[in-house]
Simulated assay, not measured.
Amino acid sequence: MGKKILGLDLGSNSIGWALLAEEDGKPNRIINIGSRIFIKAVEEKTPTPKNVKRRNARLTRRVLQRRARRKQRMLKFLVSLKLLPDDLQSSLTPEIHLNAIGDPYLCRTKALDEPLTAYELGRVLLHLVQRRGFLSNRKTLLGDMADDPDVLAVLAEQEDRKQQHRTRQRRNRV
């Protein structure tokens, strides 16, 4: 009895297979073949994949985590430069201490006409880091993640959906 060869054809919704008998180093007959078709991994009433919700949630978590880490690093840096009080790092409610220093918008306005104290300057700088990209649209809000493959996939998917919507609208007009 010779060797047996298993050939697989993997698709996104199916798998095909063939079991061949080998003699003298060459396949000479088919023992059995078949295929299995799987249920598509899409939502029931929409053609979107089921993992889109999870991917979008993961993307949102990453954005929020990066923003929080960026703010925490800046806070530590400003404390090390004595531009913010030392007790901010150990405080459970740093926003209360920061608001006691002053409203960041008022401090920014004040800076146009007169010098700020060290803590006021630190408050303004921390606020700028915190509010970075505030008025951006969605694509530029994610600009610091432009090389992330998940972000690129989500943005491409959104563009595809927009294009499909435009195509459907054009067809309905005709």
Rank of each mutant, 00 (worst) to 15 (best):
52 V>C: 08
20 L>R: 01
122 G>S: 03
48 T>V: 09
136 S>D: 08
39 I>N: 15
89 Q>T: 08
88 L>G: 01
169 Q>C: 14
81 L>I: 02
138 R>C: 06
164 Q>C: 12
46 T>V: 10
97 H>E: 07
25 G>R: 02
64 L>P: 04
147 D>Y: 04
37 I>G: 15
2 G>H: 04
34 G>F: 02
54 R>V: 04
14 S>T: 07
42 V>D: 03
133 G>M: 05
102 G>D: 01
74 M>F: 08
62 R>N: 14
147 D>R: 06
115 P>N: 04
88 L>H: 00
134 F>D: 09
49 P>Y: 14
93 T>G: 05
63 V>W: 11
108 R>L: 10
80 S>Y: 03
54 R>N: 12
4 K>W: 06
107 C>Y: 00
87 D>E: 10
73 R>L: 15
74 M>A: 08
119 Y>W: 14
119 Y>H: 08
129 V>G: 00
75 L>V: 00
106 L>Y: 05
145 M>R: 14
172 N>R: 15
173 R>P: 00
16 G>D: 01
89 Q>M: 13
120 E>T: 00
78 L>G: 00
161 R>G: 10
11 G>A: 08
51 N>D: 15
32 N>W: 04
146 A>I: 07
53 K>G: 06
99 N>D: 07
55 R>H: 03
64 L>K: 13
19 L>G: 04
107 C>D: 05
136 S>T: 14
104 P>R: 01
136 S>E: 09
19 L>K: 09
124 V>H: 00
81 L>Y: 03
37 I>H: 14
109 T>N: 12
65 Q>Y: 11
30 I>A: 03
56 N>G: 08
155 L>D: 13
36 R>I: 12
22 E>M: 14
134 F>M: 11
86 D>A: 05
137 N>M: 10
150 D>C: 02
110 K>T: 10
79 V>F: 01
112 L>N: 13
63 V>G: 05
28 N>Q: 08
40 K>T: 12
146 A>F: 09
114 E>V: 15
1 M>F: 12
59 L>S: 06
159 E>P: 02
135 L>P: 00
123 R>N: 01
145 M>L: 14
67 R>K: 03
145 M>A: 06
165 H>Q: 09
125 L>K: 11
157 E>R: 06
137 N>Y: 15
96 I>V: 11
